[in-house]
């Protein structure tokens, strides 16, 4: 059986810097898979390559057995990979609902003519978009804030809105880039429950996260990066006891 996502020897170079160096990893369907590593290890860069924002220098990305290396980001989203951003990138001056509706873009088809003519099927699609958006907002518990401007939400809610926006695209694989960053303990607990609920919906999740207890509690599988290279992989407990991982995390602090 093919994995849902497979990276084969993926490499990217910025000038002389090897930001990601021949990394291979797999994400199986139904997993919550985490990507961890010290700052600058190349985690977000890998996300950017999977979602098509960066083009790898070499190596391949397979999604459902299909080679999607070098596909444009919008194409990859419509194939079923949606994502959130580490440095929240909401459409700040739009309402919460509009943000999520835009997330639904890749599942719609009406264009300019439909917009102006208001065909019955355009209206039907608009209704469907709205329903799906409500559904996604309900998952992250933001439905009652749907008319607020995105920029007026508190930080934790902005992070959750990013998740709702990605969910609206009906993804098969959801990439969460540091979803718990900047949240307090209670918010993290709620978030953890939400991530588990999303998995229950049949969506595979891959996340980058710094909060170790969050990662270790929630993940089925962990890949560890250091200086752009993969140094370990396995279940949370395997990884926790791996000497290379301990050195990568602790060694830095001792120096």
């Amino acid at each position: 059986m093919t994995s849902l996502l497979e990276l084969q020897n993926i490499t990217i170079q910025f000038g002389g810097l090897m930001a990601v160096d021949h990394v291979s990893l797999k994400v199986e369907k139904g997993w919550i898979s985490a990507l961890i590593g010290p700052n600058g290890a190349g985690k977000s860069t890998i996300f950017n390559m999977i979602s098509g924002l960066y083009k790898p220098t070499s190596g391949k990305v397979f999604f459902n057995g299909r080679d999607i290396t070098g596909y444009k980001a919008y194409k990859i989203t419509s194939l079923g990979i949606a994502r959130t951003f580490q440095n929240i990138r909401l459409f700040k001056n739009l309402s919460v609902l509009d943000n999520v509706r835009i997330g639904r873009h890749c599942r719609g088809s009406s264009g300019l003519i439909g917009a102006i003519a208001h065909f019955p099927w355009t209206k039907a699609e608009e209704k469907e978009i709205e329903e799906k958006a409500h559904e996604a907002l309900r998952v992250v518990n933001l439905l009652d804030k749907k008319d607020e401007l995105a920029k007026n939400l508190p930080y934790g809610e902005q992070r959750r809105l990013e998740i709702a926006r990605a969910l609206a695209a009906d993804p098969v694989l959801l990439l969460l880039d540091e979803p718990a960053a900047g949240m307090n303990l209670q918010e993290k607990q709620t978030l953890m429950q939400m991530v588990q609920n999303i998995r229950e919906m049949g969506i595979t999740i891959m996340l980058v996260e710094h909060d170790m207890s969050f990662v270790m509690n929630i993940s089925d599988h962990v890949d560890v990066l250091n200086y752009g290279q993969k140094i370990a992989a396995g279940t949370p407990s395997e990884v926790q006891h791996n000497p290379d991982v301990i050195e990568a995390y602790l060694g830095k602090e001792i120096e």
Binding site: S51, L53, K72, A73, Y74, T77, S78, A82, R83, F85, R89, L90, F91, K92, N93, L94, D98, R101, I102, G103, H105, C106, G108, S110, G111, L112, G114, A115, T122, E125, E126, I129, R165, A169
Partner: peptide
């Protein structure tokens, strides 16, 4: 409309818009 929202998304954050499938 869906069309117009895609345009506003581009105004607000082009890269995020692209990642949303636009």
């Amino acid at each position: 409309s869906r069309f117009g929202r895609a345009l506003t998304a581009i105004r607000e954050d082009e890269l995020a818009a692209e990642a949303m499938g636009i």
